[in-house]
Amino acid sequence: MTGNVVSAVATPDLKGDLSGAVERLRRDRAHERRKRRAWAIFTPLALLLGWELASRFGLLDERFFPSPLNIVSDALRYFAEPDLRADLLVHLAQSGTRLGLGFLLGAVAGLLVGLAIGLHPVTRYALSAVINGIYPLPKLTLYPLMIIFFGIGNTSMIALIALGVFFMVAINTASGVMYSDPVYKDVASAFELPRLVRLRTITVPAAIPSVISGLRLGFGQALIIVVATEFVAGDGGVGYLIWNSWQILDVPVMFLGLTIVGLTGWLASACISWLGKILAPWQAD
């Protein structure tokens, strides 16, 4: 196994200037980014424009699909006129309270129970049948039951929201604890970490990405439940606003409600993503 050296250079000389090539690559990347942004703005605008024209020229029934500009000007009344504004704020406060309290209660309970399930096998055996039995039920089907328990009003709505959030967070937390990379557990055992140190420095951080996705799914549930129960309960809130304005054919207000719900979902999702970046910066998404 011998061979002759065919060619060898101590260190190949650096030939030429690469800055031109780098500049070109940078330009291509910037171009691609601009293209992505342009389309992200263009498509929704085009849809709105199509809608605007379609209702202006009578292709869409104006009673059900008022033009976007009409909706905006109508919606602006809710911000300009004090009476309407106060009304809107009351609805927002009602929904916000239900959503916030329900989400908070459900998330905290889900986190604790999820941790217990993940860490303690007997808890897991004891609860898994119950959780797997209730989890697949659409939570809305339990609303009547909640009313029986807590009466008509805020409490039963908050309880149902908390329940929906609880399952998402608990299941995701438990699986985060149980199915994170097994080498983390091996490290904890091999270096004989005391129980609390292990929980604080290994188990919980390893579960964070999964908890975050549980919170995200949970918030989605919470939003559905708050709107749907408000449809039914007739006791104010953004869901009530949507349903009521549809019934009295005040369609622009219905769209206002839809926009509020949509923005809330988008904002919460962004916040949860941000939380994930802060708590688990090693996770590339």
Binding site: V183, D186, V187, I208
Partner: peptide
């Protein structure tokens, strides 16, 4: 360990 056992956090 054989696999990466550093704790990323």
């Amino acid at each position: 360990f054989q696999s990466d056992s550093t704790l990323p956090w």
